[in-house]
Design a protein around this nucleic acid. Structure first.
Lengths: 223, 223
DNA sequence: CCAAAAGTGTTGACTGTACACCCATGT
DNA sequence: ACATGGGTGTACAGTCAACACTTTTGG
């Protein structure tokens, strides 16, 4: 096989990164500094190098733009409408990612193109077909939380059952009965109690739990 | 946007077409006439034109190579290992398809490259990373049959409950209790009885059913 | 003592699963 | 008459859903 340099033409990678912040689902967006769609909000993304996979490119882009660590990342869908990019025929291999809020270095400085969190329920117009991509990713988050242990990526290493519960309510945008939820979740054996106790708040201290495994794992059935 | 002619470089489309035949899951494969992987079995596929979407290319290829009609088709995954194709950096946008056996014109003539059905449980080595693609598609068939009405694509327009049951057992490769299966399936209201009766066999005649809708539909829960 | 979240069980409804026999027809 | 798949019901077990009060701490 021949060796190449530079970028693969005609293919980009775009990543929809979700987190839970202030009790609501947020997505990471940049503001485009150059045309097309200058000043529009867009998903972080870019072209891929000849020597890297699409997932590799996604991880590189997230690391460079946002210093992300401990991310849950998987391929989402390839968007390929003929006219989705005014520059020509460009196909986007999109990715779906979950992170804890504090795993992203959101530089609040005025660097344009620096990523920031945006509430999914109140997005302005996005560049390209990125609104469609985000909508597609939103559909996936529920199934990931319901059929896998992906929740570990949205939470700190140690967390209380209350945090876990609040996170599910925010991500699925619905009320969930706390007793039933905790009963069900504990029966799955995905998490275990630790000896840590979170105190210092003006309330009863909470026992902290951790995920038994912080690797992607599929379940038969969840809840 | 500029107009282009010819093929998009660096991207192919490959389709995993499944059917149920002789009580077992089969996949449609061609024998490659030219290198690389000459004489190996491979998924039907090809490059896409500048003016068509990947799904459009998939439908065109299936129509040209196998005269397929009434197909259930959806994007599966994009395979992008750096070394998956000896000709260079070529990414495959793969598709997943379900058809009734008789919806494909399998020309039994000796034309090489003409598609034929192969039992999934006994595949020989495939070209490229097509074995991985087929394995990935196999994982999807169960969820499609369990969470959507995709079964319509694997059956003739009118079918007996016995055929439906046998088809599910073949596709999921497991025994399913017939009474429970039928009870559950009927409760979903996806199918309705017709006035047609299948007789002429040396057995009790069967009432024929049809799908209420033959468009892809998602269900909350299936079975 | 007050505010705030932690923590904890029971009951009734529903759903899934296991299981076996008679029926209608063609040969 | 027999071989073949068609067609049907019940009982038990397990899971889901609804529901509210007491506890522990910090201020």
């Amino acid at each position: 096989m021949k060796t190449h340099q530079g970028y693969v033409p005609g293919i980009t990678v775009d990543i929809t990164v979700f987190t839970i912040k202030d009790g609501a689902l947020h997505v990471l967006l940049i503001e485009r500094a150059s045309p097309p769609y200058k000043k529009h909000l867009a998903l972080p993304g870019g072209f891929l190098f000849f020597h890297e996979t699409a997932e590799g490119a996604a991880r590189r882009i997230l690391k460079d733009k946002a210093g992300v660590k401990n991310i849950y990342l998987e391929q989402l869908y390839s968007f390929d409408s003929v006219d989705r990019d005014p520059r020509g025929r460009i196909i986007s291999i999109s990715f779906f990612a979950l992170v804890a809020e504090d795993a992203v270095e959101v530089t609040e400085g005025r660097t344009t193109e620096s990523p920031r969190w945006h509430r999914v329920s109140a997005l302005s117009k996005l560049a390209f077909d990125h609104a469609r991509i985000v909508a597609y990713a939103e559909k996936r988050i529920a199934s990931k939380l319901e059929y896998t242990n992906a929740a570990y990526a949205l939470l700190p290493r140690f967390f209380s059952l209350g945090q876990l519960h609040a996170m599910y309510e925010a991500a699925l945008s619905k009320k969930i009965d706390k007793r039933n939820f905790i009963k069900k979740f504990l029966s799955l054996k995905l998490i275990r109690p630790t000896k840590k106790i979170l105190s210092g708040l003006r309330q009863r201290p909470a026992r902290l739990y951790e995920f038994v495994s912080r690797k992607p794992t599929e379940l038969k059935k969840f809840f």
